[in-house]
Design a protein around this nucleic acid. Structure first.
Lengths: 347, 347
DNA sequence: CTGAAAGCGCTAACAT
DNA sequence: ATGTTAGCGCTTTCAG
């Protein structure tokens, strides 16, 4: 708390004027004389006066804070998003409360509840892998809470959203694998109920179709919990590797699945890219120093956070109700490195 | 905000009783009849009553939130610390406001100010690399704000702190490098004004001394901004590499310096460990799949956050003033991988 | 057992 | 130009 805080009352008393005069002077009201203003400002500075945000919030009915719900902070992509969010939130006087779902619906529910109980002015959310029922968000949205979705979004609520161009990113990635000569390309992805899964899958299939490669469902593997635990991805990879018709390349669909796949293949002694090539969505800045250097689809995490927050604050601060909702799509970037090359160019 | 929120007043009106009765019933006061309590509880549940936290805070003079100041969230070590912090904060009903200094004193100053203005009940801080003057924290501490330091700490304030056993971690790392046969061991570290720098340097020197290796100042390189930008580390590494007496191994002192060093050496075409061996502090879960797999000193980030938060909440919630302050030291773990081996055992 | 009233710090409509 | 008052939602004496 505002320890030993000086209040408006204290200043009023010291100056022998009323509290409301001080309040008005502090916000440079036209109905206060210059002399008094100067006096008040000086006194406030002298005592390092800071308005009590609780009192202001109670009065104004806002909290100047934004809630964020993501799967986990311990993830390059999301920490970049958070950096983007903070870069605009702080400059507009909002602070930010981050909560993590760890891909669990129950945690998402309790986090959203916790946040709204704690009084936020708006919510930024990337849905958990498990989430299928959106009633908790619809309820709040109907009550008037501004919400902006990013990354894992939904069409069930009418509001703004920001995503990467997942379909195109996946398309380019798959096309690259085809271009360098692979035809048996597996796709390891998250739960089919998550928006990004569908979008990335679409891009993957598109690239195959365009190149007359039949889509083989046994090469498409879902991790229902988004790869929250290693075992989930281990099982899926074991199936692919032990398959009689083993894929030549794997295209992985998320930060965690990508890096975990690399780790598991390493442990299994599967050589990349000789035994199996690998390319995946990841924002790790270590991609070029991995073994082998990792071909990657990079998402503009920082910009995504930035854009989502701008839109959210727009929703919060606008007077009239919004009727037009935007779906912002940000481009991804494809980085070709060694892990997706059919012949390893060793250094 | 609590959108369309039901207040105590609303419940009171609906039930035809007074607001204070409702308030008391809600906290199961002994001076309210069981019958009324049941009525109130039912009504509250029916309308999904949530107390307004602003009003409660204003009344109680606390905010149930903790401020965190770290250098950056985009860092495995710190994101693990945050996970630890949240694990205890939420369970005790506190929420958490994270701010980043990006190693800048000015940002630290404005963040700390922002946080206290926003009314926090306590502060968890890892000092920025640039910070030398602690007046901003002393001032708040004197006013009674509970503060717990972690990671980069100071002796200038009398309060709890939690650190890794940096000296021992550095000692073990250096000793390992000596044991496998290196004698020319460089140390690339952060600013000499930061606590962890001194501690790690001490361990480094201790290991050298114990093995009768003279300490050579030209092998000790400081990054005054903690390696905030690449160029800083590039310069330092260039000096080491171009030295006529090039070191055989480098021991790096922080998450960012370690991973950046690996990246730069890669780009320069310096082979690890053949040309130069590398071992450093890092918490990245990708260490084993780096090229080469990276020998690392691992800090218990999660436990550090957990412990620091437990102590902070202890300070906040205790009635009587604390006189005994603890300095908790958590063990590090050394992982030997390929990057520190004099002969690479290739797979 | 229940209610009335005051007050946390700030603001704004309404006096003066 | 300045002061008075009421009230945001909740808690806590203090009366009844």
């Amino acid at each position: 708390m505002n320890f030993g805080a000086v209040t408006i009352k204290d200043i009023a008393k010291e100056l022998g004027i009323s509290a409301s005069a001080v309040s008005k002077a502090l916000k440079d009201s036209h109905e206060i004389s210059e002399k008094t203003k100067k006096l008040v400002l000086e006194c406030a500075k002298k005592h390092n006066y800071q308005p009590n945000p609780m009192a202001q919030s109670l009065k104004r009915g806002n909290s100047k804070s934004l809630g964020i719900v993501i799967s986990t902070i311990d993830n390059q992509f999301f920490s970049q998003v958070i950096n983007g969010i903070e870069s605009v939130a702080y400059s507009k006087g909002y602070n930010v409360i981050i909560t993590q779902t760890h891909e669990s619906y129950d945690l998402e529910l309790s986090n959203v509840n916790h946040l709204t109980v704690r009084a936020i002015d708006g919510l930024l959310i990337s849905l958990s892998t498990e989430t299928r029922n959106l009633d908790h968000l619809k309820y709040l949205h109907d009550k008037g809470l501004p919400i902006v979705f990013f990354d894992r979004v939904t069409d069930e609520l009418e509001t703004h959203s920001v995503i990467a161009d997942n379909c195109k990113g996946a398309y380019e990635a798959t096309k690259h694998l085809i271009d360098v000569g692979f035809r048996k390309i597996a796709h390891v992805t998250s739960s089919p109920h998550v928006s990004i899964t569908a979008e990335r899958l679409k891009g993957y299939k598109l690239a195959l179709e365009e190149n007359n490669i039949p889509i083989d469902e046994k090469y498409i593997k879902y991790c229902l919990h988004g790869g929250r635990d290693l075992a989930e991805i281990e099982n899926v990879l074991a199936e692919l590797i032990q398959s009689t018709d083993r894929p030549e390349a794997i295209f992985t669909a998320s930060e965690r699945i990508t890096t975990t796949t690399l780790t598991i293949l390493h442990r299994l002694g599967v050589k990349i890219p000789q035994d199996i090539a690998l390319l995946g969505f990841t924002n790790t800045h270590l991609a070029e120093v991995l073994n082998p250097s990792l071909s990657a689809v990079y998402q503009p995490g920082f910009d995504m956070g930035k854009k989502a927050t701008e839109m959210l604050i727009g929703l919060i601060e606008t007077k009239r109700p919004i009727t037009e909702f935007q779906k912002v799509v940000l481009p991804t970037e494809l980085f070709i490195r060694d892990s997706s090359q059919p012949v390893l160019i060793s250094k």
